[in-house]
């Protein structure tokens, strides 16, 4: 029956359908228009090799508060702002939160279209999003910001420990499936397809776990409080970040009686070479050729990382390790005794 169906009729309907779909996209275009009106172009320090003198930001109050990324671009007496309508202003630096790497600027204006941070939404993985920014400084004057479409890939935390990401921020982020780690994009807005603000685009960041560039945004609920405090002039700088808490007496494998194989490779697997008698290791029946895989819940990919993980543990505490013996995974708790050397 379908074969008799006139094809051109179907094609015609199809085109009508697409027109309707296009009409729906116009809805999205309107949302984009309204959101672009809240974006600003920021010009400041930089402009030399690899250090672009521009970045993105967005307006967060009708009287001209602007949220952006805290970066070297703001490290100058004269930061200028170009609004979406082309008007230019000198901006005042109200303050920055080095922990979140966000800053608030202020321009002397009124009745500006803006994103209300109170109304910002939280996203979950799979949400469709738009990233608005002045990447590559493509837009000038009253030319609107660039818009990229994507999906929230996953909501995860930036692992600050172990230097995976070179950033002081280790909170939750939205990982995006669109390339936003472009010059000038930091400080841009992440919105959903309804035009609701969800995040601020992060600075260019490399994931040292697999040497890829990360595309991400910091959720607004992470920065909201700092922004309010900066606006109110109450923000207390936390520039001095608390160092990672190291135990006073860090653990070392030798204290447990473990002698690892000579560490000659970049990533020598943490094989046990010898177990010293009368130690925690021998009490727990650790054997030569056991491969230590985990300390606590942290993967120990090499002798180096095993030592690093153990440093996080106080000598007085028990150490839970997971080892591979043959094809078996074994969990062993090691407790250094008071007499152990």
């Amino acid at each position: 029956m379908m074969k008799q169906f006139p094809l051109h009729f179907v094609a015609m309907l199809l085109v009508i359908g697409l027109d309707r779909a296009a009409a729906a996209d116009r809805g999205l275009s309107n949302i984009i228009d309204q959101s672009q009106a809240k974006m600003v172009k920021i010009y400041g320090a930089g402009g030399f090799r690899g250090m672009e003198g521009y970045q993105s930001g967005f307006i967060v109050s009708p009287e001209g508060h602007i949220l952006t990324a805290l970066s070297y671009v703001l490290d100058t007496d004269r930061v200028t702002i170009t609004l979406n309508d082309g008007r230019r202003f000198d901006a005042k630096f109200l303050g920055g939160d080095p922990r979140l790497e966000v800053a608030v600027l202020k321009i002397d204006a009124a009745q500006l279209p803006h994103f209300d941070l109170e109304k910002a939404v939280a996203l979950s993985a799979g949400a469709r999003v738009l990233a608005l920014s002045n990447l590559f400084n493509v837009a000038m004057g009253d030319e609107p910001a660039s818009v990229q479409n994507g999906t929230v890939s996953v909501v995860t935390r930036l692992e600050g420990r172990r230097g995976v990401f070179e950033t002081p921020y280790h909170g939750p982020i939205y990982v995006l499936d669109v390339t936003t780690n472009n010059p000038g994009a930091a400080g841009g807005a992440l919105i959903n397809h309804r035009g609701e603000l969800a995040g601020i685009l992060g600075k260019e960041l490399r994931n040292s776990l697999n040497n890829t560039w990360l595309n991400y945004a910091v959720p607004i609920d992470q920065v909201r409080q700092s922004v309010e405090e900066i606006k109110a002039g109450k923000f207390t700088s936390q520039a001095e970040l608390p160092p990672e808490k190291m135990p006073a007496h860090p653990m070392d494998p030798t204290l447990l009686g473990i002698v690892l194989i000579p560490d000659v490779l970049e990533r020598t697997p943490a094989y046990v070479d010898q177990v010293r008698p009368g130690t925690a290791a021998s009490r727990a029946a650790l054997q030569p050729d056991d491969l230590v895989l985990l300390v606590g819940n942290h993967l120990t990919q090499s002798c180096k990382s095993l030592r690093k993980e153990m440093e996080m543990i106080d000598r007085a505490d028990a150490v839970k390790v997971t080892i591979l013996r043959g094809q078996e995974l074994l969990e062993i708790t090691l407790q250094a005794g008071p007499d152990d050397k």
Binding site: F136, V138, S146, Q148, T179, N181, N182, E204
Partner: peptide, 13 residues
């Protein structure tokens, strides 16, 4: 296209 630090591959611009 605008290319960046990674050389001549798309960065969605």
């Amino acid at each position: 296209c605008s290319f960046d630090k990674r050389g001549r591959v798309s960065v969605d611009v």
